[in-house]
Structure formats: C-alpha cells, structure tokens
Design a protein around this nucleic acid. Sequence first.
DNA 1: GGTGGTAAGTTTGATTTTCGGACGTACCGT
DNA 2: ACGGTACGTCCGAAAATCAAACTTACCACC
Lengths: 154, 154
Amino acid sequence: MSRTARECSIANALAVVGERWSLLALREVMLGARRFDQIVENTGASRDILAARLRSLVAAGVLEKRQYSEHPPRHEYLATEAGRALQPVLLGLMDWGDRYVTAGPPPTVWRHSCGAELRPRCVCASCGEQVEANGVTPVRLGDVRPVTDVRPTG
Amino acid sequence: MSRTARECSIANALAVVGERWSLLALREVMLGARRFDQIVENTGASRDILAARLRSLVAAGVLEKRQYSEHPPRHEYLATEAGRALQPVLLGLMDWGDRYVTAGPPPTVWRHSCGAELRPRCVCASCGEQVEANGVTPVRLGDVRPVTDVRPTG
DNA sequence: GGTGGTAAGTTTGATTTTCGGACGTACCGT
DNA sequence: ACGGTACGTCCGAAAATCAAACTTACCACC
C-alpha cells in the first residue's frame, strides 16, 4: 500500500464512494431505479462488481437494502440519510460534466421544488456568497502521515 | 466492456476525474502542492499511476503543466479554469466526509473570503434555497443506450 | 572529478481488480 | 413441464495497480 498520505475528509469520502460504479449506483437509486437488474442496465457495470459495490455501500450506511416481496424474495436499495446527503456531490459532478465534458445539451434535467430547472450553486453557509476558487484559502491542513491502507475493507 | 448505460453528465464527469487518485491529485494542486514528488507524498499514490493520472488530467484540460525552471528542467501542475470549477465537488466530498466518515474534528479547514470558516452549501441558483434531496425531482432522463466504452482513453 | 542530493518520471515483475458470460436458485404464469 | 423474471455467484482471461529499483538531468560540495 501507500507509505504516506494526507489525513483528509476528501480521501475518507472517496474511500467510501470513490470506487468505480459506486456513485453511478447511487445516482440510479436517486433516480428511482432501485432494483439490481435496473442498476446493472443503467450503469453498465458487471453484475459481480455491482453486487460488491452495493454490499459495501450498504455496509457503509449509504444505501439500505429492503425486501419488498417475500414470495418470491425481492429486494430494493434505498438511499439512507447519509446517501441523500451526497446529493450535492452528484449535482456538482453533473453540473461540471454538463459544462466541461458533455457535448450538447444536458442529458438529465432536475426540477427544484421552487419550480425552476435546477442549477446547483455552491455558496458559503455564513455569508451566502457563491464560492469561487480564488475566494477560498486553506487555514489548517491535515497532517501527512504514514498509512497502512487507504482503501475500504471489502 | 459494458452493454448499455445511461447517457449522463455524472458518468461523463467521472470518466475524466473518477479514477483513483485523480481527485486527490487535484486536491493537492488546489492546496498548493504543485510538484510531482509533493503530490506523491501527500496522496500516497504510486509514482507510475500518478504520472498517468496527471497526464490524463492535463489531456482533459483539468490541469496545466508548466516548466518553472529550464536548468535543471522542473515542472509544476496548475489547475485550469475547468479544474478550479471542480472546487464545489471537492468541497462537497470534504463536507460529506467530515459529517459521515471522518472521526473527530475536520482535518482540513478552509476560510472563505468573507472571513468565516467555510461551510459549503448547495443551493438552487434560481431561488437560492438550500437543495434538499426530497426537493429535487428528475424531469428528463438521459437515455439508456448501447455503449462500446464508458472509460476515458489512456 | 568524484560523491551525494533533488526532481521527475519510467521500468519491472508480482499482485489485485475488473470484465463479461455462464451458471444457480427461487419463484411465478400458463 | 416449460419459459420467464429477479438477484445474484462463479469462472478464466484481461487489465489495472502496486512498491521498489532504475534512469536522466542537473547542482553543490569537497
């Protein structure tokens, strides 16, 4: 594994949702595709990898697995509060992808409860101003320290 | 590769910055660690993988590679406008990691230009209200279509 | 002019992960 | 009994990742 790394909540967050297919699986659950085969179809992940990802997301408390039929046994995946709290990350990625990667118009559009087409903005909770990269400065940094393993177990 | 997948800017964004170490490398550049050895030390990535990630981020227009010394030849990496535009994603991940993953106090703290400790919030650009997961509904979804390759070239 | 150090990678060979297709299990409908 | 659906697991092949050693290019000191 790695020798040293900065102690950092970005790294910690990515250890939980940063592996391939994890955020896309969460996206599907948020979009209402809650069943295994739908998530496979809509993400394009391999069945075994997706099963592993869903297991680890459930273990991390991001998703919840619920049985909605006993005969036959059928399950669905729901976002927990922690999972719903990732919405800003998904919306941020979508907005960035719309602007800098996707050619043509945004493939997916959301509506906010105010009635408008949702365009997410990142603002400072204190002053309400939009956060610009040059208006933000690190004031305390996590230490760089020896690590044995950066990655999630499982 | 995969058979089908949803056309989606989240997936497109992740094809550019979703591989392991990419966002952590960008984090380091944002924090002011612009040189190769610093990024290796602070992320914990292998040198060869990091070199590949930096190459692909430069190719995608997220980072820029600049020579700051000719003798000896030395280089640094800077965030482009597209790279700086990922700040909300990094802050969103950090905030989520602080809340749901990292034990104890936030390892890294930023200050906003207003003087306050930065706490990022995701709001609707139209009404300014904070975006809650249950206040957002998809109104148009990208098609699920056959794909040959979801991943970035390189 | 030889030794040591720094910076930015590249090479190497072993390990780990991912891939997609086939298979398994449990049930339902006809 | 046969076909279909849902939710995975298993398999061997292919690709990605790992850590350490090596390379190149320069500078500083003795």
